[in-house]
């Protein structure tokens, strides 16, 4: 602590301490604790809150697992289905994003000349100046039944009937992959950039094929970047709301949409809170498991 003060001087150190404490305490800890508390309380009209009925209960978590008391099913299949489908889709999106970004990030970091690399980075960033919701709507226009793609393909005589891109969730996968592309791209780029180019040449000189060089030299080096990018993309995809609302098929329901409904449409904040807590918890556990599996430490991710 003394070290920190002497290194940064009293003004900057105090600013850092206040800013970080404010951020952590007021924007993270307090709201999340409030949500956690709320998730264990019954949904009561304002007048009864704090009264005799306001006791800690597991009713919302039970609802998530077993459904409403009037339901005949033994489990809440609808909500569980949405939950796991959301997580599974988020995994697929993360993998898609990784597969898409890795070659580009490698190209920019190690192959392209300086000028080309800068141009590519700018062209990756510029589209993200457009608001997420607008980008989702733009994709909807592209993928709609009478959208740009279908019209172009039909007019070109390549097919007779429109493809239901939205119904097949093609639009959703594209939109979600695109939405968090940069969060995968930049950690990957950063870690690939720090790879000594001589290592690539050394591997090649020793007879290695391109695939093996990537598998044995490049990917192990970029592991932290891959973990960092994947974690962010997974978390944000699982928690996305705008893109799924605009682009998902009528049959696909995103778990955040459920949460949104509990909060806003059904006015059941405590159930919404319980569902949020569940999503957060499972996402964190999932990411920790993945890190364990790939032997990446938390410290490496922020490198």
């Amino acid at each position: 602590m003394n070290n920190f003060f002497s290194k940064n001087g009293p003004i900057i150190s105090t600013y850092f301490l206040i800013a970080i404490s404010f951020w952590v305490i007021f924007l993270i800890i307090i709201p999340q604790l409030y949500m956690l508390d709320l998730s264990f309380r019954p949904n009561l009209p304002p007048l009864l809150r704090g009264g005799e009925e306001d006791v800690y209960t597991l009713t919302h978590y039970k609802h998530f697992l077993f459904g409403s008391e009037t339901s005949k099913d033994s489990y809440n299949f609808v909500d569980l289905n949405v939950f796991f489908k959301t997580l599974a889709t988020a995994v697929v999106i993360t993998i898609l994003s990784l597969c898409f970004c890795y070659p580009i990030a490698f190209y920019i970091a190690k192959v392209a000349e300086h000028k080309t690399a800068r141009l590519l980075i700018v062209s990756l960033i510029v589209p993200f100046w457009i608001n997420e919701l607008l980008r989702a709507f733009a994709l909807r226009i592209l993928f709609a039944g009478e959208g740009v793609i279908n019209n172009a393909l039909i007019n070109a005589g390549l097919m007779d009937n429109a493809i239901n891109f939205i119904g097949q969730d093609v639009a959703l996968f594209t939109g979600l992959t695109y939405a968090y592309l940069l969060l995968m791209m930049f950690p990957l780029y950063n870690s690939l950039e720090s790879l000594d180019t001589n290592q690539l040449e050394a591997a090649k000189d020793l007879g290695s094929s391109t695939v093996r060089t990537h598998w044995r030299v490049v990917i192990p080096h970029a592991k932290a970047g891959i973990a960092s990018g994947s974690t962010m993309v997974f978390m944000l995809t699982a928690g996305a709301l705008a893109t799924p609302v605009v682009l998902s098929s009528p049959n696909t329901f995103w778990f955040t949409q459920l949460i949104y409904q509990w909060f806003n449409m059904n006015d059941n904040w405590s159930r919404g809170a319980a569902y949020s807590v569940l999503l957060l918890l499972v996402s964190v556990v999932f990411v920790l498991l993945m890190m364990k599996l790939f032997r990446v430490k938390v410290g490496e991710i922020v490198k």
Partner: peptide, 21 residues
């Protein structure tokens, strides 16, 4: 004929050993 197919081996100035192996 590429470097991976030539009967030569190169020792780099910075050695370029693979640090993770």
């Amino acid at each position: 004929i590429g470097p991976n197919k030539r009967p030569t081996s190169l020792i780099f100035q910075n050695l370029a050993l693979f640090p993770l192996m």
